[in-house]
Nucleic acid binder design. Structure first.
Lengths: 219, 219
DNA sequence: TTCTGTGAATTTATTCACAGCA
DNA sequence: TGCTGTGAATAAATTCACAGAA
């Protein structure tokens, strides 16, 4: 039953696109479970996630030999392995800064709790929100970031504030010991190299679409 | 003053990563304008957007010769060119499906109107929301999608609904003639090849971060 | 000189194609 | 036979390095 895991020497330098695809695989498993498919082929997994089958096999093989030749991959095993690889075997403590509509949407978003994330505290500048709870999460005043993040040993900060405030908040989060930031503000954050940042820019995504829409009109 | 634009023959097959970087460049221009810098070098633009200078030059050169050797790039010209390339010279008509917190956040998000997007209609299943306006946008019942999208000649659909409803809504949008969809639901949509889809999955972004956080702990 | 634009070199990612195992 | 795992081939993206214009 126990499957080989790739040795540490081999596990290095996994391509970033591979990492980015793992969540996609993860998201397609429930569909197979629901259809009572306990074993699936790379072809099926590929079809379900819109990726080339060879790519799927290569991606998975970076982390070990999870499949059985001639048979396929055990969905449950694969699901567990993917979660482990993505670091989802532990619960990550998150601070949400900005309890506006976007922040509230993130608090409500079931995907987080399910996937092993716990929003430990929320912060907002609006005094009328401070002290209240939203989805069971206490809202603090923004200046409390340093203290609360430190006390609760929060590891990841999620920024749902206007761009004008983003850098200042990021500085506080970094100062309080956060190791990664997910930034929804449309700006580039300056942080120490040891802190990871991923930006999600909603307008950029639309602009990417309009590039192709406009281009296809030309033809 | 008029600069050469790359001939159509040369403009083909622009790498996708290049397209994805254009919005980043676009976002850094106001900073230069604010600092009264009318001309900038690829090095400065690179620093401001966290990209290699050679990459910046190559990206820009795909679309024509916008710079002046020995001098740099005129910020205003570059801004106008980037917008044109991304198709932002026209106003794109958008339908927002799902007027919950995420939907409301998108309606409030100033970046859209500023960048040349207009949300023409919003849709929600909640009868208590239907008929009202949110940020000046009328909310319709979900079954009205086909009619309203067609009438208003809406080109892009933004999905801010639960994953369980996403495919059904996408079908309606496609049926009503939408040419692109921005999907915030954590699922993969099946649409005709002629329709563009971009997915923004909030949990995936966090999972990407935790992969690296967990990995760095190992060392 | 400075800084762009761009071929060439390099690095990285994807896809092919098949050996090897169930 | 069917399907994985993987080296080899291919394709794509990035970076180098320098010719050429201001």
């Amino acid at each position: 039953m126990t499957k080989k895991t790739a040795p540490a020497s081999k596990r290095r330098n996994i391509p970033d696109p591979t990492i980015a695809r793992l969540p996609r695989y993860l998201r397609s498993f429930p569909e197979f479970v629901h259809a009572n498919r306990s074993v699936i082929s790379s072809k099926e997994l590929a079809a379900a996630s819109g990726i080339n089958p060879a790519q799927v096999r290569k991606d998975l093989a970076y982390f070990g030999q999870f499949g059985q030749r001639g048979i396929g991959y055990d969905v449950k095993t694969l699901d567990a392995k993917m979660r482990e690889i993505l670091g989802l075997h532990k619960v990550w403590r998150i601070a949400l800064v900005g309890a506006g509509h976007l922040g509230t949407a993130l608090l409500q978003y079931g995907g987080f709790t399910k996937a092993g994330f716990r929003i430990e505290a929320a912060f907002d500048v609006d005094p009328s929100k401070v002290g209240w709870e939203l989805e069971g999460v206490r809202i603090w005043a923004t200046p409390a970031i340093r203290q609360v993040v430190r006390e609760k040993k929060i590891e990841i900060g999620v920024l749902a504030v206007p761009a004008s405030q983003a850098q200042r908040v990021a500085d506080d989060l970094v100062d309080a010991g956060v190791r990664a930031i997910l930034n929804f503000a449309p700006c580039i954050l300056a942080v120490p190299k040891s802190v990871l940042v991923r930006g999600v820019d909603l307008a950029s995504e639309l602009e990417h679409l309009t590039y192709f829409l406009d281009k296809s009109r030309e033809k």
